[in-house]
Amino acid sequence: MYPRSFDYIAPASLEDAVRELGNAEFAKVMAGGMSLIPLMKLRLLSPDLVVDIGRIGGLGEIEDTGDHLSIGALVRHRDTASSDVVPTALRQAASWTGDVQVRNRGTTCGAVAHADVAADQPAAVLALGATMVARGPSGIREIPSDEFFVDALTSALAPDEILTEIRIPKRGGGSAYDKLGRRGGHTDYAVAGAAAWVTVSDGAVTDARVALTGVGTKPELARAAMEAIVGTDGSEGAVRAASERATEGITVIEDLYGSVEYKTHLAKVMVRRALTQALTEARS
């Protein structure tokens, strides 16, 4: 309930924030604090310094730059969930993240940077082929989402880097996210969830990305399913065949909510449902 003592700073600029991160032995970046503060209260994480980026201006916008959508570091889940420019997969994932209070304060970038194995939005940004923009002492670094999620609660961000922006390419098509939550339905963390993005041209699936959450040790691309659906007509049979390959190449991990066998099965169901919905959107 009581975090260990730490120093706190709320810098006014990203430059200052990055500098402060470099000056401490163990510093953590905080935006909404929804993931960080509980870990600190349980003393599972005890940084020397918390760098609160919550007061830095200009990070709270969802911007349409023409070729991509930029989601700033302080865009809350509720903003992502209610945006009419954010692709369906991410919007849906944000709307199923946490609860009302968590969505009021937690940020999309924070949830992505936290890289929880069962969180919703990491799968969505992965399926949407987003680029993570990190700012560190040596400037700005762009990290493709495919390389961003390294392991459970571990991203490619260096300790002195801040995820300042998520860029989602505007490549058309349709997207969707579906999951089974721990309490059933869509509530709570995912027992298994899948995000899908597809483009369709002349009745054929021309491109696709599918990502899973809750299944393995990190949010991961379901590459076999992606390959299987591209080039098909996106029919029910094609989707079913592709979803059968949902966990190929992925190490499925058992937890309190499901055995390996169950999660493997559930991943297929969620991939099928997400692909089906994404195709419907792509065709409309």
């Binding site: 309490r183 059933g184 509530t187 709570d188 309190l256």
Partner: peptide, 28 residues
Amino acid sequence: MFEEAVYDAEGNLLTPSLLDYILPTAVD
């Protein structure tokens, strides 16, 4: 539907928080 105090074979309670000890919410 939801609740279970789960112990592992070594006697660790695996559901010590409300994250893992699932209580019904209004939605359920």
